[in-house]
């Protein structure tokens, strides 16, 4: 009797699971997965979007192997990710912990201030920062020279442009990731901390032995999602430098966009996108594995 009930329950569970997933699976298949497969299909063709496709097998992939500009853009994407992801992770977690310790009133004010940049469209935030970064009259340089430092070129320099763009994208996204961390910190029962306090643990110790480990799930989520986002970053770079100066900010998606829509090499661009997808996929998988293994 009990077993029958359990079996029915199990069947019920499977049916409910599929029913819950169905709308998403249908939608994602039609609006994301099918276009992805189509992009792969296009990658086996020579296609300029305007005239019929010509099947050329894996020629696009062969061509890619010797495309120095592509591999340089992949290198820049990795560099961008290596700066952006740790910075975003640390800063948003840092401020989440700080804000969490404030009184409700101040916490709410500070949270709103951190979140406001997220409300502004990426194009407009890029424009605002172009003004702040201006080599001659920009606010940042005025500030630097008032402190007696040399002026910086920011977006006009091949060394500083990428980092300057990272700073803008951090500015936009810190607040949002911070509130996701905060939502998660709120789930940690307060008595854990009280117990730690009684044991005489310092704040840093409490963070290391309670907060940080309990946030591991959220951390993995943020790290994976941020990594994917940084591999597909586009808008702000397009507006601020369109890949310049002298290609120093030409990341992979920018190059794919150029191949696709400026040169109209749709087939080749799709092949590049397929490879970029594989790179991101492998990295995400590795991160997920790392997470489940430890757990």
């Amino acid at each position: 009797m009990k077993r029958m009930k359990k079996n029915r329950r199990k069947r019920n569970e499977v049916v409910t699971a599929y029913a819950f997933l169905l709308p998403n699976l249908v939608g994602l298949t039609v609006f994301v997965f099918f276009p992805m497969i189509y992009a792969f299909y296009v990658s086996l063709h020579d296609w300029n979007a305007l005239s019929p496709k010509v099947f050329i097998g894996f020629d696009n992939y062969i061509e890619m192997a010797s495309d120095k500009r592509w591999w340089a853009s992949v290198g820049r994407t990795f560099l961008f990710t290596l700066i952006y992801v740790p910075a975003l992770y640390c800063l948003s977690l840092f401020f989440a912990v700080i804000l969490n310790n404030l009184k409700q009133k101040y916490q709410s004010i500070a949270r709103t201030m951190f979140l406001l940049p997220f409300a502004i469209t990426s194009v407009i935030s890029a424009v605002i920062w172009m003004f702040l970064y201006d080599p001659r009259n920009g606010v940042l340089n005025q500030f630097l020279s008032s402190l007696g430092f040399d002026k910086l070129e920011f977006l006009g320099s091949t060394n500083q442009a990428l980092v300057s763009i990272v700073a803008v994208i951090l500015w936009i996204n810190i607040g949002y990731n911070m509130i996701i961390f905060m939502a998660s910190i709120k789930e940690i029962p307060k008595d854990y901390y009280e117990a730690a306090k009684i044991d005489g643990a310092s704040a840093w110790r409490a963070f290391r032995s309670i907060t940080f480990p309990l946030l591991r799930g959220t951390s993995t989520f943020i790290l994976i999602v941020t990594m994917i986002a940084s591999f597909t970053v586009f808008d702000q770079i397009m507006v601020m430098t369109s890949g310049g100066p002298a290609s120093s900010t030409e990341v992979s998606v920018l190059y794919i966009y150029k191949q696709a829509f400026e040169f109209l090499n749709m087939g080749y661009a799709s092949a590049l996108a397929v490879i970029l997808f594989l790179i991101i996929f492998i990295l995400s998988l590795a991160q997920l594995r790392l997470y489940t293994k430890k757990g």
């Binding site: 994602l28 609006f31 992009a39 979007a49 794919i256 696709a260 829509f261 661009a269």
Partner: peptide
């Protein structure tokens, strides 16, 4: 299913723009 869902995050929008238009 989970892996498949996550993988749909990894495609830059500019790449699927043309087929998405076609679908819609």
């Amino acid at each position: 299913t989970f892996g498949w869902i996550i993988s749909t995050l990894m495609v830059p929008f500019s790449v699927i723009m043309i087929p998405l238009y076609m679908v819609v």
